[in-house]
Amino acid sequence: MWQQLFMQCLNGLGVAGILVIAAAGLAIIFGVAGVINMAHGQFIMVGAYTAALVDELGGNMFMSIPIAFVVVALLGLIVERGVIQWIYDRPLETLLATWGVGIILEVTMKFIFGTLGRKVDWPDLLDGSIRIFARPPHFPYYRVFHVVLAIVILAVTFYILYRTRFGLKVRTVRRNRSMASCLGIDTAKIDMLIFMYGSGLAGIAGAVIAPIKAATIDMGFSYSVNSYMVIVLGGVGNLLGIPTGSFLIGEAETLLAFRYNTVIGQLLVFIAIVIAIRVFPRGIFGYQERR
């Protein structure tokens, strides 16, 4: 019993790791540019297919991570320059436009790759599991990897935002856009770069999520909804919001799923989140707008 409970807590940590990886890009874009990218799930899917392609050409996941980052960042660039840059001032309508982007991405990927799911393998290094207890289930290496990668992504993002000149500009823009603009900061460029960075993170998410299942056309949606929940709960006022929201949701869902079942787990977590926003209207680490 205690072994199972312990494993369950560890699993929750792994799920939280995936949530951080999936939500980080979305949260950063939302936090800085104020845009929710409804095609985020499809960006993840494109990342997954990139990884599948790298896999097929004989590469492994460590190669596909930077490639997926670049590919999806470029996709983000196209989407930002082509669509979103015109509608930053209409945040609700970006939801619709990016929803359309998502549909187009799905159809295009179906056209290119066909309907069959693509397999993505783990690199041999990560194939296997840690034997915490004598008999299975063991704790798979990939879960450890997810948690480590989540920490790395957060650390890199923290470094970029708080220790570089670019990060200083980004924080200025998010504090007061028009003032930043007056001070000579090219806000449009900041928005564009942040959108590319966030999209690239979605690509990484796809590349590391695909190996636990397969790259399929419709894999994106559930991840994007989970990412929204992380944002709503954690808030985007502070980088700490992402891991906090992810950790709470991940642990709560897995533990409740263990105690009851998966759907009740999700239901209770949702109700808890709705109650939580009574207390934290902008998320736990929310940024209080000046009204």
Partner: peptide, 9 residues
């Protein structure tokens, strides 16, 4: 999908 984007833009 294209229609949605076109409508918004």
């Amino acid at each position: 999908g294209a229609l949605f984007i076109a409508v918004v833009l």
